[in-house]
Design a protein around this nucleic acid. Structure first.
Lengths: 340, 340
DNA sequence: TGTATATTTGATAACGTTTACATTTTAACG
DNA sequence: CGTTAAAATGTAAACGTTATCAAATATACA
């Protein structure tokens, strides 16, 4: 039994409704040039035949901006922050009748490069990328070739692309200031991977808060390794082993926070009495932690939407000057730092 | 400045290396018919010209099984279990030089249907689906049309497709038995949405454990609403309000577990002394919860891989009888039920 | 060397659309 | 009613590949 090919194709619709395939194509694309009467007839044919345009053929033929496919390059799909971004992008794309194709490179440099190539050969309308500096050159190449790119989460040094990102410095500042106001003076910062630009922005915010309150920031209290769970574990162990223990920890992302929580619990530390903790990145299970986590919320979902919108704007106005959207984060005060 | 079109296309490679496009196409597809010598020359041309095949054109022209695109239909990308599945599928696909296109329908029935159509018009080689019974008919239609489908997480009633799923009954049994052995007799079960088949399988496992130990299962202790966080919260509240409180809770998925944890903490319940809790679905932050969560681990990543493998096997053997892969889950004993 | 048979290659028609451009139909107007 | 402009449709050439078939070249063998 060979697979019966129900997919009708423009031709059959055309034959069925007695017009040319060009006309059918026109009604599919809502071309106003076609007479209302014929449009109706064709639409009926489409419905009864159950015709659906072949998006692959459309994409092959269509000129840019009409391919209805956006490429999304994501460092780690396990990170709920990026999942929020994905959802945001997907939401916007969906409303534009576009599909999004995700390149999740899992922090793997090889994959990161390869996925740029792959998405490219898929003829995307444009890219939304959260890349590492490693692929900066490659991304710039895309831009030079006229492919729209919007950077999300992390900006490109040479700002020839649109970018939407969190105000990392402000976020880190808020977190640190919150701790300081609560009376903490010795605050450890578990920073992320120093290869990633956001890490430095967050460290800067941490420093700025100290400065504002005329406190000296102890360099020895800034810890950094990588951005993952394991680093959170190890660095928290180091912090607890310190002869002169800090009274609070500020972790630079949700994975580090989790690692920190694990160690704190393992050592039966009382949070926040013995040690307070505040994290960058709010997560949907913040309230299920014990105590509920006070955190800096990034608006990933909204950022994703904005990025997609920016991308489509650029598609229609390729020559517009690059826009930069800096989203202010918000402090979600819960229990892990004590009374607010 | 118009975008310079660097993408060379078969033609240019052919001209450059002095062969026909057919030959170039052959070396791209590693056709053994081409002489080693010419193959080398063409490869060199490909390299120096920086040629990359256009996957869209390939897909349009290629017959089934050579399109290198798999469609993945996922109910909720926020659920880490599904993220594991995605990663598994993606890993396998990547090694086959295939891309995966994700249709995350966010539990929205409208989107669920639509995404099937969309992925279809993207000419996927086949589908991997975790659908609800709502779209069962639509999925069966795909199968009838000869499009390979493998069901993941949930099986189709009419088993004409491959399926890979967790042994839900066994998992629920393990969890409940664990509790019973620890001395619990009154164990509440926060089940998922009754529309979803897995819910019933897990309830069955819960019942089976009681049966084995000659205990009567109290119907009043099985709670069900939906499968989300909020339901976990509400149902746990109900449980705590019971005149005769159970000594343990078995939650049917990670979202429900999280909701339960929140309420338990809010009520300052001592876990596991006052109430024990065990959850279906292990999560990477189980150790960061307080106490660390004892849970039934589903092997999402492995399942994803297996599903992809099954899909590609079916692609090459369309007539093979449907396979069914039932994966045994594993109990991850940590602290939320007390000593093991 | 000539013939038969493998091996390699090349020309070209698809795949299912969109889009110039040409053509036909309709409307407008004196 | 004839002419001209506008509106609606049709024709056919792309888009960048793969695949079929035929042609050309190399290999084997008598």
């Amino acid at each position: 039994m060979k697979p019966k090919n129900t997919s009708s194709g423009l031709k059959e619709v055309a034959r069925y409704s007695g017009v040319s395939i060009a006309t059918v194509s026109r009604v599919i694309n809502a071309d106003p040039k076609v007479k209302a009467e014929t449009a109706l007839a064709v639409q009926k044919a489409i419905k009864t035949l159950g015709y659906r345009p072949n998006r692959v053929a459309q994409r092959l033929r269509a000129t840019t901006a009409r391919r209805r496919l956006v490429g999304l390059l994501i460092p780690d799909i396990q990170n709920p922050y990026y999942v929020d971004i994905i959802r945001g992008v997907e939401h916007y794309a969906y409303n534009q009748n576009a599909t999004v194709i995700i390149g999740n490179f899992s922090q793997d440099p090889k994959k990161e490069e390869l996925y740029i190539d792959i998405l490219r050969s898929e003829s995307v309308d444009g890219f939304i990328v959260a890349t590492t500096p490693r692929t900066e050159k490659k991304v710039e190449l895309l831009i030079e070739e006229g492919i729209p790119v919007v950077c999300i989460d992390r900006g490109l040094r040479s700002l020839k692309a649109d970018v939407v990102k969190t105000d990392n410095e402000a976020g880190a500042f808020m977190a640190t200031e919150h701790l300081i106001r609560l009376g903490h003076k010795r605050i450890a910062h578990i920073a992320g991977d120093k290869e990633i630009p956001t890490t430095h922005e967050r460290i800067a915010g941490y420093r700025a808060a100290f400065k504002k309150y005329h406190l000296k920031t102890e360099e020895g209290l800034i810890f950094s390794r990588k951005s993952d769970y394991e680093s959170g574990v190890q660095l928290t162990e180091e912090i607890l082993a310190l002869k002169c223990r800090p009274t609070a920890i500020f972790t630079a992302n949700n994975l580090l926070t989790l690692g920190s929580y694990e160690v704190l619990h393992r050592h039966k530390m009382k949070i926040p009495e013995e040690i307070a903790i505040i994290g960058f990145d709010d997560v949907y299970w913040a309230n299920s932690l014990n105590p509920a986590l006070t955190a800096v919320k990034q608006f990933g979902y909204e950022m994703g939407q904005q990025a997609a919108e920016l991308l489509y704007k650029r598609l229609s106005h390729p020559q517009a000057p690059p826009a930069s959207l800096i989203i202010k984060p918000e402090l979600m005060i819960r229990k892990s730092c004590g009374e607010s």
